[in-house]
Amino acid sequence: MNYSAEQLERYSRHIILQEVGVEGQEKIGAARVLIVGAGGLGSPAALYLAAAGVGTIGIVDGDVVDLSNLQRQIAHYTKDVGREKVLSAEEKMVAINPDVKVQTHRMLLKAANIREVIRDYDFVLDGTDNFPTKFLVNDACVMENIPFSHGGILRFDGQTMTVLPGRSSCYRCTFRQPPPPDAVPTCSQAGVLGAIAGMLGTIQAAETLKYFIGTGELLTDTLLSFNALNMTFRRVPLRRQDSCPLCGSKPTITELVDYEQTACVIK
């Protein structure tokens, strides 16, 4: 690819990194990433991936911006309240970097539609706010053999892992099934320190970029969790489980299912 002088200046701080260079930036430019959820995690991820020059970024969300989102969902501004989140996010991403092609998917991902949507991308970044969709993203990505970054935040805590289907442990290797509805409070019921959305979403964005550059160590077979109240970080080693109902040797999950949704019932 031939970069313009303006593009070379825009991406100069990537290009001068030995681990990135011209070749790494070209890989970023050719990358197709789907961000699931234009919320707390999806917002910083979308902005940083756009800034980084990821060539095609898809963003999925069926919601409109709510005033209570603005405390942490930094792609959305006060003027955007009531507007579709995907359109609000697209506007900011393109404003940061007009090189980036943004594909908006205003929809809720379901068992019936997710595989078709993710199939168009090389990597999926899960920024969803509920367990049913996290399992759906994991299962669909494993079935479609698409690498993804799992992420979740609540109160002062965050956790993330990167999954390379067939090569590293999947979310279900460790967490067999969603917790019962109402067993776990959602963000809207429990609260969340806004800044930790940025902490976790940017870790996911960095993992995404590293995947395409092909350098360093990904958070595969590793659950990284932090508690921002004490600012402690912990890495939990994980292993692929032969008994995993999804990616084990005798899978029992061969079709996608929609679990009961309980997310964000309180505003």
């Binding site: 970069y3 070379l8 200046e9 100069s12 701080r13 290009i15 001068i16 260079g21 011209v22 070749e23």
Partner: peptide, 13 residues
């Protein structure tokens, strides 16, 4: 600096 390094790396590639 650092654009001279950027252009050098592009030329090297």
């Amino acid at each position: 600096c650092p654009m001279n390094l950027v252009y050098t790396k592009v030329a090297m590639s």
